[in-house]
Simulated assay, not measured.
Amino acid sequence: MARPSNHSSEFRSDAIALWRASADRRTFKDVAADLNVNPETLRTWARGSDSHPPSADASQDTETELARLRAENARLAKAEKEWQLARELLRQAAAYFTREMK
């Protein structure tokens, strides 16, 4: 069982924001040293912050995007079947004309 944290949730969210703002230049270890916390603690906070449920707006956007992608997937699957049919017809025509040439 984990022991209770000595840091407030505001401190944690600020620490995560600081790390994310400088993630391209600084490591967990660098940011944690500045804040005087263990790097693994900061890493755990960052991982935990990613698991929050999305907002209602994000959920609606996700549903809209999912519906659009499903429609596009169906359209592309239909087009693929048509291309397969066209390739098969061309293959048969090539075989027919090859036989006629002999």
Rank of each mutant, 00 (worst) to 15 (best):
47 R>W: 07
19 W>L: 08
74 A>L: 11
38 N>V: 05
5 S>V: 08
26 R>L: 07
90 L>P: 08
77 A>E: 11
79 A>G: 08
87 R>D: 11
78 K>M: 05
8 S>G: 07
83 W>K: 11
53 P>T: 02
47 R>D: 13
60 Q>I: 04
5 S>M: 07
76 L>K: 11
76 L>I: 09
88 E>P: 01
97 F>Y: 14
18 L>S: 02
41 T>Q: 14
61 D>A: 09
29 K>Y: 05
87 R>F: 15
42 L>R: 05
57 D>P: 00
52 H>D: 15
32 A>V: 12
68 R>Y: 12
50 D>T: 15
82 E>I: 10
91 R>Y: 15
79 A>D: 13
60 Q>A: 11
27 T>A: 08
76 L>G: 06
38 N>K: 11
56 A>I: 02
12 R>N: 05
1 M>P: 00
99 R>Q: 09
83 W>H: 04
28 F>K: 08
98 T>R: 01
32 A>Q: 04
19 W>D: 03
79 A>K: 14
85 L>K: 14
19 W>G: 03
17 A>G: 04
82 E>M: 12
83 W>L: 10
96 Y>T: 03
35 L>A: 00
54 P>E: 09
48 G>T: 10
44 T>R: 15
39 P>Y: 01
95 A>K: 08
74 A>D: 13
99 R>P: 00
43 R>H: 07
75 R>M: 06
72 E>V: 09
98 T>H: 01
36 N>E: 13
56 A>F: 01
26 R>S: 11
25 R>D: 08
87 R>C: 06
99 R>L: 04
91 R>G: 03
7 H>N: 07
30 D>Y: 03
94 A>V: 02
84 Q>N: 14
33 A>N: 09
51 S>W: 06
50 D>N: 15
99 R>F: 02
37 V>M: 03
16 I>T: 07
19 W>H: 13
22 S>R: 15
13 S>D: 07
52 H>M: 11
96 Y>S: 00
7 H>C: 08
48 G>W: 02
5 S>C: 10
51 S>G: 05
11 F>I: 05
81 K>T: 04
34 D>G: 04
54 P>V: 13
63 E>N: 13
73 N>C: 12
56 A>W: 01
102 K>E: 05
22 S>E: 13
47 R>S: 15
93 A>V: 04
6 N>L: 09
13 S>E: 06
74 A>P: 10
5 S>W: 09
37 V>D: 07
66 L>P: 00
101 M>L: 06
45 W>A: 04
52 H>P: 07
64 T>P: 00
68 R>Q: 12
76 L>V: 09
24 D>F: 08
83 W>Q: 07
30 D>C: 06
97 F>K: 02
18 L>T: 04
37 V>W: 00
49 S>P: 12
100 E>K: 03
39 P>N: 02
75 R>Y: 07
28 F>L: 10
100 E>W: 00
4 P>T: 13
45 W>F: 01
62 T>Y: 14
72 E>H: 15
42 L>I: 09
9 S>Y: 06
39 P>S: 06
85 L>R: 15
97 F>I: 02
65 E>Y: 14
20 R>G: 02
39 P>F: 06
90 L>K: 15
49 S>Y: 14
41 T>W: 04
48 G>S: 14
45 W>E: 06
84 Q>C: 10
10 E>L: 05
86 A>M: 10
3 R>C: 07
70 R>W: 09
42 L>C: 02
28 F>N: 04
